[in-house]
Simulated assay, not measured.
Amino acid sequence: MVEAISISDKVAILSKRPATIKNIYDIELNMDGTKTPLKTRKVPDFQKYFDILWKELDTHEA
Rank of each mutant, 00 (worst) to 15 (best):
I5L: 08
I5M: 04
I5V: 14
S6A: 15
S6Y: 00
S6Q: 05
I7R: 12
I7W: 06
S8C: 12
D9A: 11
D9P: 04
K10G: 04
K10C: 07
A12D: 04
A12F: 14
I13S: 01
I13Y: 00
I13E: 00
L14I: 11
L14V: 10
S15M: 09
S15K: 06
K16A: 13
K16F: 10
R17W: 07
R17Y: 12
R17F: 11
P18M: 06
P18Q: 06
A19R: 11
A19Q: 11
T20V: 08
I21H: 10
K22V: 08
N23I: 06
N23L: 09
I24G: 01
I24T: 15
I24S: 02
I24M: 04
Y25I: 13
Y25R: 05
D26H: 10
D26T: 13
D26N: 12
I27W: 01
E28D: 15
E28A: 12
L29T: 05
N30F: 05
N30D: 11
N30V: 08
N30C: 04
N30W: 03
M31C: 06
D32M: 09
G33L: 01
T34W: 06
T34I: 15
T34F: 14
T34S: 07
K35T: 07
T36K: 09
T36F: 11
P37W: 12
P37K: 12
P37L: 13
P37E: 14
K39Y: 05
K39I: 05
R41C: 06
K42Y: 08
V43W: 03
P44S: 12
P44E: 12
D45P: 03
D45V: 04
F46N: 01
Q47W: 08
Q47G: 05
K48M: 10
Y49G: 01
Y49R: 02
F50T: 08
F50R: 10
D51Q: 15
D51C: 09
D51N: 14
I52C: 01
L53C: 08
W54H: 14
K55Q: 15
K55C: 07
K55F: 06
E56A: 02
E56M: 03
L57H: 05
L57E: 10
T59I: 11
T59Y: 09
T59Q: 14
T59W: 05
E61R: 04
E61N: 09
A62D: 14
A62I: 11
